[in-house]
């Protein structure tokens, strides 16, 4: 199994360190050629406008979608969740996304930095609370058919999955707790029928 972390901007190093701690082969993806051999890709937290523009400049949108059609799994955290959504509200007018998941994500939904928070979350399949770190975080405002809600906070969806695509509004890479990374590897990347479950 080989995963990549999109390394254009943001907290990619923390994801790489956690995957390494789990003994997984992991690569920093700076150019689209790096996508070729990957079973899974993480679009990390950062600034979604900045990452989105760099994805555009370096031609990542179509190659990622093509690799997904071949069965590559994708997980977006925070800004990454914005970039996987079919629809974004509260963003810049021309925000382009990968449109991989049938969800509407609201940017900075929980507020500005002074509203950033930590909270215990009950995440589907983890068995026991997970400390969610929310930084100027989005929430998932609407989910389409075939999208499973994995976690909620204060009545808002903060983690969801659709086939081989997963999004979290919070930052498991900042906690040192590897359970969500494990879940992505075991249940999303490693799902036997991942290729046949495209959303």
């Amino acid at each position: 199994m080989r995963v990549g972390v999109l390394a254009l901007q943001g907290a990619f190093r923390e994801h790489i360190l956690l995957f390494e701690a789990l003994g997984v082969e992991v690569e920093a993806v700076r150019l689209r050629d790096h996508l070729a051999e990957l079973d899974g890709l993480v679009v990390p937290g950062g600034e979604s406008t900045a990452i989105g523009k760099l994805m555009d400049t370096y031609g990542f949108y179509e190659p990622i979608r093509e690799r997904c059609a071949d069965g590559m799994a994708v997980w977006g955290t925070c800004a990454g969740a914005v970039l996987l959504a079919k629809k974004v509200v509260g963003g810049v007018a021309d925000q382009r996304t990968l449109e991989l998941m049938d969800v509407t994500v609201r940017r900075n939904a929980f507020g500005r930095q002074v509203d950033s928070f930590e909270a215990d979350l009950d995440v589907e399949g983890l068995g026991g609370p997970f400390r969610g770190v929310f930084i100027r975080a989005p929430w998932i405002e609407e989910v389409g058919e075939g999208v499973d809600v994995l976690a909620e906070h204060d009545g808002h969806v903060v983690a969801a999955r659709q086939g081989s695509h997963m999004i979290t509004a919070f930052h498991p890479e900042l906690t040192g707790d590897t359970r969500v990374h494990r879940l992505f590897l075991d249940q999303v990347v490693g799902a036997p029928d991942a290729a046949g479950m495209q959303g």
């Binding site: 943001g10 937290g45 950033s116 930084i135 100027r136 930052h171 900042l174």
Partner: peptide, 9 residues
């Protein structure tokens, strides 16, 4: 954490 999100920028 917010500073972590700004990295590389």
């Amino acid at each position: 954490g917010l500073a972590e999100m700004l990295k590389g920028g």
